[in-house]
Write a protein that binds this DNA or RNA. Structure first.
Lengths: 219, 219
DNA sequence: GTCTATAAAAGGATAGAC
DNA sequence: GTCTATCCTTTTATAGAC
């Protein structure tokens, strides 16, 4: 069922819709859904409110599109990291520090998910995107532990449990970055410290004894 | 400068103000500040909107009072736990499981703090209350580690680092409880699992070898 | 201390011109 | 595809009776 006929300025349209989503993401990561107005979003994108209703059904629809946009962008990052690293300990290491480096982006996603969960807007589409988001993390982490146990570099830990442990901790770390550091540097520093400590503790929980080689690369 | 003269129905007034704060807390823990209306809060408390303006300056003032109210209640709980337990490992254990048992209350506080941080309402009073909240946790945890190292039941770990590790993790756990379990049981289960795993990992990080005696009490 | 009624402002949404 | 102008609803806040 492909759309035919003349696609008039369709490139332009996509740009505008995306500009609106970017503006919405930016504003929604700093303020709640209800406190960000249609006018705010339009102004931020250099457009008027009417344009939002041309590209989206209503404000809720823009929220849906924005959350999906943010999650898909984050998932792309997730894949870039996880596809290029085979060695389990190295991948976990990268996973942890990806959260330090991208704490600002990931903080926005987390903030949006929290906001969405506490809003009256509930759609299957977003629910699935959120599930995909956390599911990907779970798959990556469980896969790492599993593989590490098989190859013998890890001697301890259940994949399911470690996965929950890590992703719960990282949620906390990213959240702290959001709560503490309004100034970006402060947030980054807070996350960095806690992740460093956590990594050491994690290696110990996994019975991993080769961290010196890894941490010299990034730390 | 003490107020004298007849304090007409002053007890009643305090009750009403507190009822409003309780209603506000309840609604604000499930919805954002901007999406909760003055009318909602009034209705929840069985009163009209005008009463809010009798007891509080405006909506922002009610938010401020509500956050302080929630934080003070949580701090009271914190003290109840930390005052009655001397042994460091037992106190840390209780601290962790307090977050499981009170995940609903603490989730509300966390939600309010996040909301406050992302609102345009910024007051020194609340900032101080938030600092006191996290400061208390920090003091308790650092105190435990310090004492444990001195008495020799812990053989490893820096107080500052462990404190950051634990409180960051617990933020994540409580947040997960909020995100996942709209149903209270689900949230509790999710937190419980992750805290159990974390506790084991933590004892290992502290070089603590007596956990069997402790976990049999609560686990 | 509490209510009813209402003013005043803000926000979401649409119609119609270009 | 985009803008201007505007309508309608919701929400905050106040005045005044009881």
């Amino acid at each position: 069922m492909k759309k035919v006929g003349r696609p008039r300025q369709v490139g332009q349209a996509r740009d505008t819709a995306e500009a609106l989503k970017r503006s919405a993401l930016d504003l929604l990561s700093r303020n709640s859904y209800r406190s960000v107005t249609i006018k705010d979003i339009g102004r931020e994108a250099g457009l008027t409110t009417a344009m939002i209703y041309y590209h989206f059904r209503d404000k809720n629809d823009l929220l849906r599109a924005t959350i999906e946009y943010a999650i898909e962008k984050a998932l792309t990052r997730f894949q870039e990291v996880s596809e290029n690293i085979d060695e389990p300990a190295a991948l976990i290491h990268e996973w942890l520090y990806m959260h330090v480096n991208l704490h600002s982006e990931l903080g926005k996603v987390l903030k949006l998910i929290i906001d969405y969960n506490h809003s009256d807007v509930q759609t299957d589409q977003i629910d699935e995107a959120v599930q995909r988001f956390y599911g990907t993390e779970r798959d990556v982490l469980m896969g790492c532990v599993q593989k590490g146990l098989e190859t013998g570099i890890f001697s301890d830990g259940k994949p399911e449990e470690i996965s929950i442990l890590v992703s719960t901790f990282l949620d906390g770390a990213v959240l702290r970055g959001q709560i503490l550091g309004e100034t970006d540097a402060q947030g980054a520093a807070a996350i960095q410290t806690s992740v460093e400590v956590f990594e050491r503790v994690l290696w110990s929980a996994l019975g991993f004894r080769g961290r010196a080689a890894l941490s010299s690369r990034t730390g």
